[in-house]
Design a protein around this nucleic acid. Structure first.
Lengths: 208, 208
DNA sequence: TCCACTAACGCAAATTATTTGCTTTTGTGC
DNA sequence: GCACAAAAGCAAATAATTTGCGTTAGTGGA
């Protein structure tokens, strides 16, 4: 089994060799089918033949295009994890950050989010994982750019990834869900000295 | 397919229902078989029938006991990730911590370590992931206890998990390997104020 | 030590998933 | 339009998974 493990690379089946109508339709139908099935039935019962049937596609099409179920699930998860827009503008850069990270943590810690994370990480090809991490970094970059514009003191991207995102993801993957106040504490810790929360003292949580 | 998804729980097949001779032998043979195969062949070619053959066991035995390949791989990975002993005693508590974390990061970032991590995370049952995180926390607890004995200032377990272990694991899972100096920087950041590195200034790396 | 009990294993048939060679459809560039 | 080839469909061949039932062998009690 699994002889042609990486033909996807061997024959450059990558991104846009022929993105025209039919291919795109098949891809959309298959993705939709996967999303539907994940929403309605237990993940252990989701199989490629079933996905294919619901998508009105032949199983071999899926096998040839994605390789195996894990790769397909990872692909679907990665596309669902792609942010729909930029972080909301609430108020100060820090407020925006807090709001965004809280929502991020909630999404990732939810049942579906957690499973998507795992799907992405368990794929043989790490491309989707990198893509997913890239999305996060991009969102943070937007927040950082805003802070720069207004001159507000703000953590660097590395600090945010290492000390806010990483602990959140670790907890989700290995233990349990991080709560909203835990997230705020993480943020408080990486904010540069002198950056105030609202109008009060640094560690205060009175405002809001 | 996969009808009896979680019979392992339904009928309490858990840890020690009957750990006597034969069961233990089968478990050892299967684990060994998996380790051998992972070492010699491509992971995509590792199948349950092959594992069974090499372990001189019937495939259905493996299916009934572990459920599927992912669960088996996660089980093997978790047992390989179990630390063999306590962290080495090098010198100061901080030196011990640095040495231990560096080795931890190296192991996890290596090809095998990375794959084991992913195996553990991709299993449907999160028990192995928790177990694995528990090992890490236990090792850290030992280091913390030592620091307490000698009265050296030391980070808390939460600080270490959140700001040293988490960023390392995140990088391994999503991006690339963390280097030794990156690891030392993380440690430097969580050491309490006033804790000196070797005999010199805090951020110095002259010693050692 | 022997015996009853049953968890766990082995075997083999039935089912289901995966691979593969070949044909057909259909975007794409000229 | 037309030629080209990428991607899809189809179906047969292969391989993995499930399952029912018989057998083996730890475990606890007499």
């Amino acid at each position: 089994m699994a002889k042609g493990k990486d033909w996807q690379r061997l024959m450059g089946y990558r991104e846009n060799p022929r993105p025209g109508g039919r291919s795109a339709r098949v891809q959309a139908a298959v993705h939709q089918s996967v999303r539907d099935m994940l929403a309605t039935m237990d993940r252990a019962d989701v199989t490629i033949p079933l996905i294919a049937q619901r998508a009105n596609v032949t199983p071999s099409t899926i096998y040839r295009r994605w390789g195996d179920l894990q790769a397909l699930l990872a692909d679907v998860a990665a596309s669902r994890l792609q942010p729909e827009g930029e972080p909301a503008r609430i108020g100060s850069a820090r407020d925006d950050l807090e709001a965004w990270v809280e929502q991020y943590a909630d999404e990732m810690a939810s049942g579906v989010g957690r499973r998507m994370l795992r799907d992405i990480l368990s794929a043989a090809d790490g491309a989707n994982a990198e893509k997913c991490s890239g999305y996060t970094q991009h969102q943070l970059a937007v927040l950082i750019a805003r802070a720069e514009e207004t001159g507000e003191p703000f953590p660097t991207q590395t600090e945010l990834m290492d000390h806010v995102i990483s602990p959140i993801i670790y907890r989700i993957l290995f233990d349990q869900a991080p709560g909203a106040d835990y997230v705020r504490e993480l943020i408080a810790k990486v904010m540069p000295e002198g950056a105030l929360k609202g109008g009060s003292a640094r560690t205060s949580r009175a405002t809001r």
